[in-house]
């Protein structure tokens, strides 16, 4: 107990459990209410909103953002603060998969190699963090800058063959929903089970929640830092394959488009930026909600220009309301 309070006090990022204190379920419920309110309002405004096309449009919106957010959430959960460089593995894998395809690689080695090579970005990050002991936020800011520049130099033009399976993956459907949605769904389920029920998963939470206690109880912080940053990059790499499938002309500068939305999704989902708390099911709903906003705006007849404004406002309101609620319960108890 005292360890915890002391930790909280030392960091300005006071860990706050989002919605109703302890329960993840309460958090998920609140997010669901938020999401359904938006859907309901849009449907009342225009009944066409409840169509299969809208559903698919929202699902497509979720595909890349969702996978990236899972990678980011893993970093946040493990106490790595934030990974501002995830755009680098995203683009790297996207470009590599195109290049490997053009060289005639078959699907499996192509996927494995292009994604694994992206993992190097995470290892570099972890090296700076663990060995040189630089704060992750500074490290990933630096590698993000440097990596972005390198990508521009390495890949000025990566064009996806419209006949390729990559391009086809971007427009195909499996089991009635866009195929590109499944990576996100599978990752969500996998991470949820991993974090909730597996020993490595619980240790990730322990490392994030209280590195001191974790270290004292014999968990190797270094190993977990390497692992989480590596896997976050790998996950971003998978998002990169989807990115290539969606974007026949991969432009290195496009990678940064997702940086802020993915952090917003993670924060909205209730992941504490101080590490150690968060739920991947909530993240799924949070991504879904944020992906519904732009579609709903169009139905309300607003220019897409307004989209960032609403996304920002929603984030502020959600975080504030939650904090207010937490504060009240704290003062009571």
């Amino acid at each position: 107990m005292s360890i915890n309070s002391n930790e909280q006090r030392r960091s300005p990022l006071y860990p706050r459990r989002i919605f109703f204190g302890t329960g993840d379920s309460g958090n998920i419920l609140a997010l669901l209410i938020l999401w359904f309110t938006l859907i309901g309002a849009s449907a009342i405004n225009n009944s066409l909103f409840l169509s299969k096309t809208t559903f698919n449009a929202v699902v497509f919106n979720m595909c890349i953002l969702g996978v990236l957010a899972i990678g980011q959430a893993l970093i946040v959960l493990s106490g790595g603060i934030l990974d501002l460089s995830l755009a680098v593995p995203l683009i790297l894998t996207g470009c590599l998969s195109v290049i490997f395809y053009d060289r005639g690689w078959s699907t499996l080695p192509l996927l494995i190699f292009s994604v694994l090579i992206s993992g190097i970005v995470g290892l570099i990050n972890a090296f700076f963090i663990v060995v040189l002991k630089i704060n992750p936020l500074i490290v990933t800011l630096g590698t993000g800058f440097a990596g972005g520049g390198l990508l521009l130099i390495l890949f000025d033009r990566a064009m996806v063959n419209p006949e390729s399976w990559i391009a086809n993956f971007g427009i195909s459907y499996s089991l009635g929903v866009p195929s590109a949605w499944w990576p996100m769904v599978l990752f969500t389920i996998f991470m949820h089970i991993l974090i909730k029920y597996s020993r490595p998963g619980r240790r990730v939470v322990a490392v994030g929640g209280n590195p001191v206690a974790a270290k004292v109880s014999g968990i190797s912080l270094k190993r977990y830092r390497f692992a989480t940053f590596f896997f976050a990059s790998i996950i971003a790499g998978v998002a990169g394959v989807i990115f290539a499938a969606f974007t026949p002309e991969i432009r290195p500068s496009s990678g940064t488009l997702y940086t802020l939305p993915m952090i917003a999704a993670v924060v909205l989902a209730g992941f504490s930026l101080a590490g150690g708390s968060g739920n991947f099911l909530a993240l799924f709903i949070s991504v879904g909600f944020l992906s519904t906003v732009p579609t709903a705006l169009v139905f309300f007849g607003l220019e897409s220009l307004w989209e960032p404004f609403f996304q920002g406002v929603i984030l502020i309101v959600a975080v504030s309301l939650d904090a207010l609620r937490t504060k009240k319960t704290v003062t009571k108890g």
């Binding site: 096309t53 809208t54 698919n56 497509f60 919106n61 974007t247 732009p294 169009v298 220019e303 897409s304």
Partner: peptide, 23 residues
């Protein structure tokens, strides 16, 4: 009219939403 920023990654989702609104 919508903002595509001359970029596939921006124009694509924006257009998708417009198509959804005009099924």
């Amino acid at each position: 009219i919508f903002e595509g920023n001359g970029e596939i990654a921006v124009a694509q989702p924006a257009a998708r939403d417009i198509l959804a609104a005009n099924p």
